[in-house]
Computed example of a mutant assay.
Amino acid sequence: MTHPPCNCHPRLIDPTGERTGKLNDVGLTMLIDKGIGLVAFEELLQLAGSYVDFIKLGFGTMALYPPELLQKKLLLAKKHDVILYPGGTLFELAYQQDVLMEHLHHLKDIGFEYIEISDGTIDLPFSERCKIIREAAKLGFNVITECGKKADGSCLDIEDLKTTLYSDLECGACFVIVEGRESGENIGIYDKKGDIGIEFLSAVEKNIPSKIRKHLIWEAPQKNQQIGLIRFWGRNVNIGNIQMDDAINLECLRRGLRYDTFPNKRSGTITTTL
Rank of each mutant, 00 (worst) to 15 (best):
Cys6Pro: 00
Cys6Ile: 08
His9Arg: 10
Pro10Gly: 03
Leu12Phe: 11
Leu12Gln: 12
Glu18Thr: 12
Gly21Gln: 05
Leu23Lys: 13
Asp25Ile: 02
Ile32Thr: 11
Lys34Asp: 04
Ala40Asp: 15
Glu43Asp: 15
Leu45Val: 09
Gln46Asn: 15
Gln46Cys: 14
Ala48Ser: 15
Ser50Asp: 11
Phe59Met: 14
Met62Glu: 05
Tyr65Phe: 15
Pro67Asp: 15
Glu68Val: 13
Glu68Arg: 14
Leu74Glu: 08
Leu74Tyr: 09
Lys79Thr: 12
His80Ile: 03
Val82Gly: 06
Pro86Met: 13
Pro86Tyr: 13
Thr89His: 08
Thr89Asp: 01
Leu90Asp: 13
Tyr95Gln: 11
Tyr95Trp: 11
Asp98Lys: 15
Glu102Ile: 01
His105Gly: 00
Lys108Ile: 01
Lys108Glu: 09
Asp109Tyr: 06
Asp109Pro: 00
Ile110Asn: 08
Tyr114Pro: 01
Ile122Cys: 05
Ile132Asp: 08
Ile133Gly: 00
Ala137Met: 01
Lys138Arg: 13
Leu139Trp: 07
Asn142Ile: 02
Thr145Trp: 03
Ala151Gln: 14
Leu156Gly: 07
Lys162Tyr: 01
Asp168Gly: 00
Leu169Phe: 00
Cys171Gly: 00
Phe175Pro: 00
Glu179Val: 10
Ser183Tyr: 06
Gly184Tyr: 06
Glu185Ala: 12
Asn186Met: 01
Ile187Asp: 04
Tyr190Phe: 15
Asp191Val: 02
Lys193Gln: 13
Lys193Gly: 05
Phe200Gly: 04
Lys214Ala: 02
His215Phe: 04
Leu216Asn: 11
Ile217Arg: 11
Asn224Asp: 13
Gln225Arg: 06
Ile227Phe: 10
Leu229Thr: 11
Ile230Arg: 12
Phe232Thr: 07
Gly234Ile: 06
Val237Arg: 02
Asn238Gly: 04
Gly240Glu: 09
Ile248Ala: 10
Leu250Val: 13
Gly256Lys: 08
Leu257Pro: 10
Pro263Glu: 07
Arg266Ala: 04
Thr272Glu: 12
Thr272Cys: 07
